[in-house]
């Protein structure tokens, strides 16, 4: 079980968090102007990397804040956590 450093609360057990999948997928501002394929790209296509991955996490049983995490899925090493809206760190 990971120990996750919530940017608002500090280190907490993984059981307090939920994972929200790949980070930095921005909801299109003008969906109506997108083709079916472009919309499907936003809607369905997610990476599933073996290695360093950028993820959304929510401190669901804590402050309820969403934030981003950089995690290596091959060894579960968490390289960084950062708030929504902040620039992703270079890993």
């Amino acid at each position: 079980m990971f120990l996750i450093n919530c940017p608002y609360c500090g280190e907490r057990d993984q059981s307090e968090f939920t994972c929200g999948g790949e980070a930095h997928i921005v909801r299109p501002k003008q969906p109506t102007e997108l083709s079916d394929d472009q919309w499907a790209e936003y809607l369905f296509m997610r990476k599933n990397i073996k290695g360093v991955q950028f993820e959304r996490w929510n401190h669901a049983h804590g402050c309820r804040k969403w934030f981003n995490m950089v995690r290596d899925t091959s060894n579960d090493k968490i390289h960084a956590v950062y708030k929504m809206g902040e620039k992703p760190p270079v890993v």
Binding site: V26, R27, W66
Partner: peptide, 13 residues
């Protein structure tokens, strides 16, 4: 509630 919070915090801050 979680879904609405998610949109508020991440898409429409």
């Amino acid at each position: 509630l979680s879904k609405l919070e998610d949109y508020l915090q991440t898409e429409w801050p």
